[in-house]
């Protein structure tokens, strides 16, 4: 336990870190003041997961997706979720072709390597389920035919935390499908001022060509990064730390239903990517701790009375991180 089949070499780790840093830098040139979100999205993509971005409108979530797709040379599709959106609008549908004298499948927007599902909680549950099924199985079934989705495949779903009128909150079981839930906050005022300066200088977010975003790698390159990350060594102590963290959410008094083993797996995958992005061939507890909130905050159910008292999921994660001993820590 704890030892991967073929451990990453120092050279591979250095190469990984260089590529990761280059992609983050390219995105950071356009998306200002959101460094944590950028690196979170990159980590999720390389870990093979999907991201739920929660934040008010106008913070550059779409721009982030488009820039990421450009830097990684991936196909990018955006789906605006609305109450009348149908599952076939996401997955695609078969249309009768008179020339072929038969039904021809027209792939939906989900057939892209990077999909932005904007305001995912505005579509009814049936449409959400179609997307979430595609996310977990990486394939869609239409008219009895199963069609694989491209690889890599990553969904960036967004939702607005403020408005609740006319929304269909994602059930907890489906939230669990997202590797990370990242909170997108307003940038600092100086970053916002810098942003205005760029617009005055002629920056146009719809014209990424003008921004000269460099294509750092491509789809196969991302798949290679995924393979490298899986070879990062994770010590038994770190594994125990991960399971202890997740287990602690199940025992927390404010939690009705704790995080599932899928959360443990997610923490493990993320820790491996974080370690490799730091040029290391092994994961340390800090790698787990750094992303624990993003991995765990949407994976457990708070008790109603705790919610009434204003206890949030992040409070629970903070408690857990404060209570669970790290391997080799002070006795406390």
């Amino acid at each position: 336990m704890g030892v991967v089949e073929t451990e990453l070499t120092d050279a591979e780790a250095a190469s990984f870190a260089e590529t990761f840093g280059a992609v983050a830098d390219e995105i950071g040139r356009v998306v200002l003041g959101q460094d944590d979100v950028v690196s979170g999205v990159l980590i999720a993509m390389i870990a093979g997961g999907h991201v739920l971005l929660e934040g008010p409108p106008g913070l550059g979530k779409t721009l982030l997706g488009r820039t990421l797709a450009r830097a990684l040379r991936l196909r990018f599709h955006r789906i605006q979720f609305t109450p009348d959106l149908m599952p076939s609008d996401v997955t695609g549908s078969s249309v009768f072709d008179q020339r072929e004298n038969g039904f021809v499948f027209h792939p939906g927007p989900v057939f892209a390597e990077l999909v932005l599902a904007d305001e995912v909680n505005r579509a009814p549950a049936k449409t959400q389920a179609a997307l979430l099924e595609a996310m977990s199985d990486r394939q869609v079934t239409v008219d009895g035919a199963t069609r694989p989705l491209p690889r890599p495949f990553c969904v960036l779903a967004t939702q607005n935390p403020i408005e609740s009128e006319g929304t269909y909150p994602l059930p907890e079981a489906q939230l669990d499908r997202f590797l990370l839930k990242l909170l997108v906050a307003h940038p600092p005022i100086e970053v916002e001022t810098d942003l205005l300066g760029r617009y005055l200088a002629g920056f146009d977010p719809s014209d990424l060509d003008a921004a000269a975003i460099r294509e750092v790698t491509n789809g196969p390159g991302v798949l290679e990064l995924q393979r490298l990350a899986r070879r990062v060594r994770v010590d038994d102590g770190v594994l125990r730390y991960i399971t202890a963290l997740v287990g602690a959410t199940r025992r927390h008094p404010a939690v009705d239903l704790g995080a599932s083993p899928r959360a443990s797996i997610s923490l493990l995958l993320c820790a491996q990517v974080v370690a490799a992005s730091d040029g290391r061939t092994y994961a340390v507890p800090d790698d787990v701790k750094g992303l624990a909130a993003a991995v765990l905050r949407h994976r457990f159910l708070l008790r109603p009375e705790a919610e009434l008292e204003g206890i949030s999921a992040d409070d629970v994660v903070r408690d857990v991180l404060r209570d669970v001993p790290i391997p080799g820590g002070e006795r406390g």
Partner: peptide, 15 residues
């Protein structure tokens, strides 16, 4: 109730 009492790592790993 107190949380996560069960997760005490082996003492030989402590400072």
């Amino acid at each position: 109730a107190p949380a996560s009492e069960a997760y005490v790592l082996p003492e030989d790993e402590a400072v």
